[in-house]
Structures are given as C-alpha cells and as structure tokens.
Simulated scan of single mutants.
Amino acid sequence: MDFIHAFVLALVQGITEFLPISSSAHLILLPYLSGWSDQGLIYDLAAHLGTLGAVILYFRRDLGRVLVGGWQSISGHGVSEDGRLFWYLVIASVPVGIVGLTIYGLVAGQFRAAALIAVTNILFALLLWWSDKSARLSRDFNAINLRDALLIGMAQAVALIPGVSRSGVTITAALFLGLTRQAAARFSFLLSVPATLMATTYGLYRLLFLPAEGDVLMFSLVAVLSFLGALMAIHLFLRFLDRFGMLPYVVYRLVLGGLLLVLFI
C-alpha cells in the first residue's frame, strides 16, 4: 500500500463510518474507481482502531459516566440513570454479536456483492427518509428504555449486511421510536463503541492466524487519518443535524446506490 492509497482509504473509512451513508458502499466503489487492490485485514483493523478512538474521545464524558454507573450497578450500589444506560448498551449490543458470529462467512463473502450493496443502500436510504419525515421527535435521550434498546440493537444487527449503514439503520429505528434526532444520533454513536470493540477484537483474533504483513508506518497513518476523519464527521453531523435533518444523506445515498447499479450491473 502506498501513501496515496493509505491516505484516501483512511479518510473515506473515517468519514463514512459514522455518517448514515454506508461505508461499505464507498469501500467497494473506491477500488473500482482507483484500480487499487483490497487493502487487507491489517489496514481494515487500523481504520477501525482510528474510528473507535474518535468516538471514545468525542463521547469520553458520556462513556465515563456510563462505565461508572455500570460498575456501581454491578458492585451492588444501586442502578442509576447512567447504570441503566450501561445495561441498555450491553443489551443492544448482543444481537449484532450473535448474528455477526453466526453469518460472518456470508458477510465477508456473498453479501459483498456490488448489486446487493447498491440495492440495500437505496432501500435503507428510503427507510431513513421515511423515519425522519414521519418522526414525532418527542422523546429525549433520558426517555430511552429497555424496549428501545432491544429494537435499536436488533436494527444494528441488520447493518451487518453491507450497504445498510450501521449508523443509518440505528438512527432510523430510533426515529421510528419517537426519539429526537440528537437523542437518536447520540445513542447510535454510543452503541458503536461496543460494536466496534467486538469487530476489532475479532479482527485481532483472525490476524493471529494470518501471515504477518503490513507496514508499521502505513498502519499508523491509516489509524491516525481515520481517527481525524471520524472525529470531524461526528462533530459536523451533530452540529448540523437539526438544521438539515436526514435529507442530504438520503439524496447522497440514492445517487451513490444508482451509481453502483450503473457500474456493476
């Protein structure tokens, strides 16, 4: 992997990971347009480490309170609001862990077909538009309950299918449940932490059984640039969310999905 490849890959992965525009659709289009080969597991891992670091840094105060609340509930000091959120995040992460381990072969193989990614990108973009258009936007973050966590967690499991978009489908579910845009996005971002931790851990496990390859400098570059891209994307997304809603992302996904259909079908 050369510098330009690493630079583009890291920024694309970092920026698209948390926006509701499907990072997988971009990552399949990138090699087609550039002629680059697949970057390999080690650089995927670097990119995920970067995005994980970004969301942890951005929500460090929320995550700190959640971890303290979770520890207090485990150690018998009662369940506070932060403690409940800890368990909601744990419960919401179970479906994606179970489904991911069950169908990993399909996700890494047949599900990466360009036609499928194009279709899921378009269909779930329309679903995102519908949820935003019909949303009551009447429930704030503190109103999230166990039912919400379970339903959003099940929606997150669907995002294992490339083209769906993890952030897109979890925000879609949250909006259908009546949460405000900010509450939906905040819960989606917090929920990405355990999901990305699981994916990164599994990537490290798989890496143990593969020949050592990759360059330390390029690995570091991809991680750092993914971190910076993700940090910028999270900040700008939340800043302009209430002003523009989901329509810009829906339009972008429809165009991207159409482009994939034209190029690959």
Rank of each mutant, 00 (worst) to 15 (best):
R181N: 04
A185C: 06
V224L: 15
S188N: 00
G229Q: 04
M232S: 14
L231M: 13
I171G: 01
G229P: 07
R181G: 00
S188Y: 02
A174L: 03
F227Q: 14
V193E: 05
L228W: 02
A183F: 03
G168P: 08
L177I: 08
S226N: 10
V224D: 10
G214S: 11
T180P: 03
Q156L: 04
D148I: 00
A233F: 13
R206K: 15
E213I: 13
T180C: 01
L204N: 10
F209L: 14
L151S: 09
L197G: 06
V224R: 07
F187T: 02
L217P: 06
V193S: 03
L231T: 12
R147A: 09
T201L: 13
G229S: 09
G203E: 11
I171S: 02
G229I: 10
A174D: 00
A157D: 00
L210Q: 11
I152L: 00
H235T: 15
A223N: 07
A149C: 08
L160M: 05
S220T: 15
F189L: 12
A173K: 07
A155Q: 00
L191V: 03
A149L: 06
H235P: 12
A149M: 08
L236M: 13
R206Y: 13
L197E: 01
G163S: 09
F176R: 09
N145F: 05
L151M: 14
I161N: 04
S226L: 11
G168V: 13
A223I: 12
L190C: 06
L151V: 10
S226V: 13
G163W: 04
Q182G: 08
L208N: 14
T201P: 04
L177V: 06
A212H: 14
T170Y: 01
F176H: 08
L177G: 00
